[in-house]
Computed example of a mutant assay.
Amino acid sequence: MELTVEIAAIRDGLGDSGRLVGEFRRAVLLVPLEDGPEGGLMSAASGGIRWVYAFTDEEALARFAEARGESGREWEFLSVLGARLVDAVVPAAGGPVGVVVNVADEQGSMFFPPVAGIVPDANAVDLDRGEVA
């Protein structure tokens, strides 16, 4: 199954979370790059989590650009495996990072939060590591 099909199944209450994460890890995703001197992967912060934007195809990225009122400009992006995002990018970020796929698609978006089973355990915000404040 492809990622968009699995997202639709989950949203319809018929999917399997394990299959969803597997499809996410295998998917080649388009991740837009920030403009300007800072560069980096385009993301937004919400609720103490940095959310990296990722898209399943150029059409989904175009819908995002349209929703932002920025469809007239050229968008640079990287093609990255979902697994690479969570296994390499998340640990390098230095804080809680998740991935949001197709964020501009009201019925087709999906959040992959920084929790065990999605990101490496060392970066999962839901694991009790026995830390004392």
Rank of each mutant, 00 (worst) to 15 (best):
M42V: 05
E34W: 03
G48S: 06
L41S: 03
A60F: 01
A44R: 15
A45T: 12
E38Y: 01
V28N: 08
E58T: 15
G36A: 14
V28A: 14
Y53P: 02
A44T: 13
G47K: 02
S46R: 11
G47L: 11
E38P: 01
E58C: 13
A62I: 04
R50M: 04
I49T: 15
L33R: 15
S43P: 08
D57G: 07
F64Q: 14
A44C: 05
L33M: 14
A62H: 05
T56W: 00
A27P: 04
G40M: 07
A60D: 13
T56I: 02
M42R: 13
W51I: 07
G39I: 05
T56F: 00
E38N: 04
E38R: 08
G36E: 09
F55N: 13
F55I: 05
F64V: 00
E59H: 12
A27E: 13
I49Q: 02
Y53G: 07
L33I: 06
G39F: 05
V52M: 13
A60G: 10
R26D: 14
A27L: 02
V28W: 01
M42D: 01
A54Y: 06
T56K: 04
M42I: 06
R63L: 15
L61C: 03
A60Q: 11
S46T: 11
R63F: 12
V52Y: 13
L33Y: 12
G47I: 08
E59R: 15
F64P: 15
G48W: 13
M42W: 12
V31Q: 06
V31N: 04
L33P: 02
L29Y: 00
E38C: 05
M42Q: 09
T56Y: 00
A62T: 07
I49K: 04
A62R: 09
A45G: 11
E38G: 09
V52D: 09
L33K: 12
A44L: 11
Y53S: 09
G40Y: 10
L33C: 13
P37S: 10
L30E: 02
A60W: 00
L30I: 00
I49H: 03
W51H: 10
L29G: 00
E34S: 03
Y53I: 06
A62N: 04
D35M: 02
L61G: 03
G48A: 05
R50A: 03
L30D: 05
L41F: 04
A62L: 09
D57K: 06
S46Y: 11
R63G: 13
P32Q: 02
T56S: 14
A62D: 07
I49R: 01
E34V: 08
G48V: 12
D57V: 09
E58Q: 15
V28D: 10
L61R: 04
F55A: 05
